[in-house]
């Protein structure tokens, strides 16, 4: 399987904001935030079609999200997962003793995971916390 290395950042999108206020338990939130925005050139390297599930792995965790083409690009080498629990499965929690986790600039690997499920926000965190779902 092809794996590519990218630099991950997270942040707000308007869809993230709207769907968050519409209810984080709803599908729209997963659709808005359970994604990774990639540059077309990186998608080509990974050999992945738009809207395919991928596994994102960092030193700190792993998560399944849907690969989508970046709308605010081009930004080859950079990947973007909207702020939310999916991004937070893999971001760097180190604060370097000043309180703020390192939400941006996390080295990740991305690989195709076409048959893996994308969980909704509640199921995602409950599973990660070892709670019943």
């Amino acid at each position: 399987m092809t794996k590519i290395s990218l630099n991950l950042i997270t942040g707000r999108t308007i869809q993230q904001g709207v769907s968050m206020e519409g209810g984080k338990e709803k599908k729209a939130y997963t659709k808005a935030c359970g994604i990774i925005e990639m540059d077309p050139s990186d998608m080509k390297k990974l050999n992945v079609w738009k809207n395919t599930n991928v596994r994102v792995t960092s030193e700190f965790g792993t998560v399944i999200v849907k690969a989508v083409e970046a709308t605010q690009g081009p930004h080859p080498g950079l990947a973007y997962i909207p702020m939310g629990p999916w991004a937070n499965m893999v971001i760097d929690p180190n604060t370097y003793s000043m309180g703020m986790p390192t939400f941006k600039g996390v080295p990740i690997e991305v690989e195709v995971a076409i048959n893996e499920p994308i969980y909704d926000s509640q199921e995602l965190v409950r599973r990660a916390c070892g709670l019943k779902v």
Binding site: I91, P93, P101, V125
Partner: peptide
């Protein structure tokens, strides 16, 4: 939703 999962 907005803390690293290790904190959650």
């Amino acid at each position: 939703a907005h803390f690293p999962i290790s904190s959650v």
